[in-house]
Design a protein around this nucleic acid. Structure first.
Lengths: 345, 345
DNA sequence: CTGTTAGCGCTTTCAC
DNA sequence: GTGAAAGCGCTAACAG
């Protein structure tokens, strides 16, 4: 039975103490603790016991100083606006990230941009080598994260297609173009012909792609270009946009909204205008993150698999981080859209 | 003009390189970079320039190895369940934390419990000294975080009153007891007398306190003990509970729900039962995190200031971390409740 | 005000 | 299989 050194409770035990307790050298203790390559069973057992007894937890700072790995990845949220934080987006994303990290012992560092602050701070952090990689979510055109990532050598995966250099930047996304087409097809199959779109912000590819899908579907079906208005991803903005839409185009019989929040606002505008849903006007939302199901009537919508998007992003990132020179290249992943039919169509 | 060493782009520049570029010793460079105490203006300028030119970013691992500070705090989410992640809770919490961290250069490490996993991993992490402090949110009775925190010396602040040792554990919370009383008072003022409660989970103090407030208010007002059912913090559970409630007590004229999600479910049950709201039955929710305003009709509710709760928790934590022996003790902070009257009362 | 000198705790050659 | 020694990048005495 090895002699145990006095336990200093205020300070975490060091590897030296574990080694001493186990009666081996620090090197052997280190090896034993890190997979046990070239360690005798006896030494291994002694070290394991000592570590457990002492409640040893390796000092990550010391380790990463020498390994040059931090065993942590960053989740970057460049614009924590109302939309992102109050919707279920961030929650779903966290769950996905958590799931993907579950089998690892990586830590998650959250990098939230601060209101009105250039992404400079985040860029410095990322290139400072403080994390092994980054998942970047809620990315807007104009914040220079794309450039930073492309320029630096930090492994990174975007959640949601970035604007530029799609060949070089890796991302996960749902096929927003196909999703919007699905919405139009569904509405047309339901007999609608005057299908309007309330587009989302065009500084996010989700907004751009959904608009493109709606437009493309109408064109492909030989339908006239529908009415188009723009909105932010909020109910208030959606309500306002829908009100304007109804005023300018009283004959619309369907609305494809760029998000469920927008659709909920549209529903309100329709109610105020005395239009029955789906009797007079059908509505399709986008995201299915809770608001769609909770709305009255429940929204027909397109599923945005944010949990899967996030967990896949982390999985790809880990591949990127671990990549050896000869490995198959890590690729972007695009999920197919799925229509969820409820009460508004 | 100091000679610049060749810039090695693959590796971040070290303090030595900055010092060499500035023509000073490493210590002087270090001092200059850390507030510039006892550094000549000339040296300071030279170091600043060199650091900027080289794009120097201090290595946190190396720094924290010697300072014994990590310059990061943890946000602990012991049970990232459906409720927490899909509601606006986590988003609001993140915003609050982000706000409070804005003036610091502390990093945020997110510790998410994994499904079915004992909080052991989190406990080890916290006592491993990997963070300077922790904010613990969504804490349930039974996860041993309280014990861990009380036993270890890690500075910690709970968001939401913990169960045990309230004297020793610091927290921020809204006064949930007073909030529920406010709800009852409001309903009574509106002429209601048969006021039921759909209680939340009793393994969270929010659920316990809201129940206590409802019960206490009825007693104080000399009203008979109202009908009581239990639910999880979800709409589906709330609907189920409300259905049972209406079956067992058809004469209720008001419901105090332990959360807005529960209230939304109750609204559905009432609609299905053909009871007009607020005509036949008034409903008060709790939280006002978006669901209340979005519901049809909009819910009267009690505001749960999650953003403030979180930012205050961080503020108190920073005080705790920085505390010098003689300082005034850091205390818990309890916010008064605020009733938001909308369409259901 | 400045430089020299020691480490912080850990992994990793490199001999044995 | 094991230990000795070196060093990751940084800060903090301590002399000067």
């Amino acid at each position: 039975m090895p002699e145990l050194p006095p336990r200093n409770d205020a300070v975490a035990p060091t590897l030296d103490e574990v080694a001493a307790a186990a009666g081996v050298s620090r090197s052997t203790a280190s090896r034993a603790l890190n997979g046990g390559l070239r360690v005798s069973p006896a030494a291994q057992a002694a070290v394991d016991d000592a570590a457990r007894l002492l409640g040893y937890v390796p000092n990550r700072a010391a380790r990463s100083l020498v390994t040059r790995r931090t065993d942590s990845i960053a989740l970057v949220v460049p614009e924590p606006d109302e939309h992102l934080l109050s919707d279920a987006f961030i929650g779903g994303t966290l769950r996905g990230v958590g799931d993907a990290l579950a089998r690892t012992d990586l830590q998650l560092v959250l990098l939230l941009a601060r209101a009105g602050e250039p992404s400079d701070r985040i860029a410095r952090y990322l290139r400072g080598g403080h994390v092994d990689g980054a998942v970047i979510t809620s990315h807007h055109e104009g914040d220079d994260l794309e450039r930073v990532v492309a320029a630096s050598s930090i492994p990174a995966v975007f959640v949601g297609r970035p604007f530029a250099a799609p060949r070089e930047l890796i991302y996960t996304d749902v096929d927003n173009v196909a999703g919007a087409r699905l919405a139009v097809d569904h509405l047309v199959a339901g007999g609608r012909r005057r299908i309007a779109h309330i587009a989302g912000p065009q500084d996010m590819t989700a907004g751009v792609d959904r608009l493109a899908g709606w437009r493309g579907a109408l064109a492909d079906l030989g339908l006239p270009a529908g009415a188009l208005v723009h909105a932010q991803f909020t109910a208030a903005s959606g309500e306002e946009a829908a009100t304007a839409l109804l005023a300018a185009h009283p004959d619309v019989d369907a609305i494809v909204a760029a998000s469920d929040t927008i659709a909920v606002g549209a529903l309100r505008a329709l109610a105020r205008a005395g239009r029955a849903v789906p009797g007079d006007v059908a509505v399709v939302g986008y995201d299915d993150l809770g608001a769609a199901e909770a709305s009255t009537p429940p929204l027909t919508t397109l599923r945005n698999p944010v949990v899967e998007l996030a967990s896949t992003a982390v999985a790809q990132l880990l591949r990127l981080v671990e990549a050896a020179p000869g490995d198959a290249p890590v690729t972007s992943v695009v999920f197919p859209p799925r229509l969820v039919v409820r009460g508004t169509t």
